[in-house]
């Protein structure tokens, strides 16, 4: 597998989310109701990415429930087209070598099967961080701790310390 194939295999993956997170996803994205009470993101992948990054900042990994209680959405390669956003996200994810239990150089010597497992665990990590971020948002939301302002998300993002640092 060369670089291009590896990238393609990764970007064809469709991360999943727990069905139970649909209310929170809908509440904060435009896919939800038009008369929103809160500031919102556009498509699902935006709130998903935000939640994932928030999850990383808060070090909140939360495994997804069994597969039949989850749903997938568009493949990562289609998140924000014509943008290098995904490259940045993958940069952040691939620095999580401890969590992924990988060594970059070892990847180069793996067999097809093992490498696909690595790809799965990358997606898995994305899903768990997103789920953790969404759980955090949901908790704030349910307890009425969200500040209803247009700057709610950036303020929250700014004040959430990055535990990696």
């Amino acid at each position: 597998m060369n670089s291009q194939e590896f990238r393609n295999n990764l970007l064809l993956k469709r991360p999943r989310y727990a069905v139970s997170r649909i209310p929170v996803l809908d509440a904060f994205s435009e896919k939800g109701s038009k008369s929103a009470d809160y500031s919102r993101f556009g498509p699902y992948y935006e709130i998903y990415i935000y939640a994932m990054m928030l999850g990383i900042k808060k070090k909140q990994r939360l495994p997804l429930p069994p597969r039949d209680l989850t749903k997938d959405f568009i493949e990562m390669g289609k998140w924000k087209r014509d943008s290098s956003l995904i490259d940045f996200l993958l940069m952040v994810i691939f620095t999580q070598t401890d969590n992924l239990q990988i060594d970059w150089n070892e990847l180069e010597d793996m067999g097809q099967e093992d490498l696909n497992k690595v790809i799965s665990s990358v997606v898995n990590l994305i899903e768990e961080y997103a789920n953790g971020g969404l759980a955090y948002l949901e908790e704030l939301w349910e307890n009425g701790k969200l500040d209803n302002s247009h700057y709610m998300f950036i303020d929250l993002y700014n004040t959430s310390s990055n535990n990696d640092n």
């Binding site: 900042k57 290098s84 956003l85 940045f88 691939f94």
Partner: peptide, 27 residues
Amino acid sequence: LEGINSRFFDGGFSWISLGFERSVVDF
């Protein structure tokens, strides 16, 4: 107002990278 949150994902603003300096160095 609708577009404020899109500034997270727009390379011109790059709000999403806020707080991830360390990850970049790490990378």
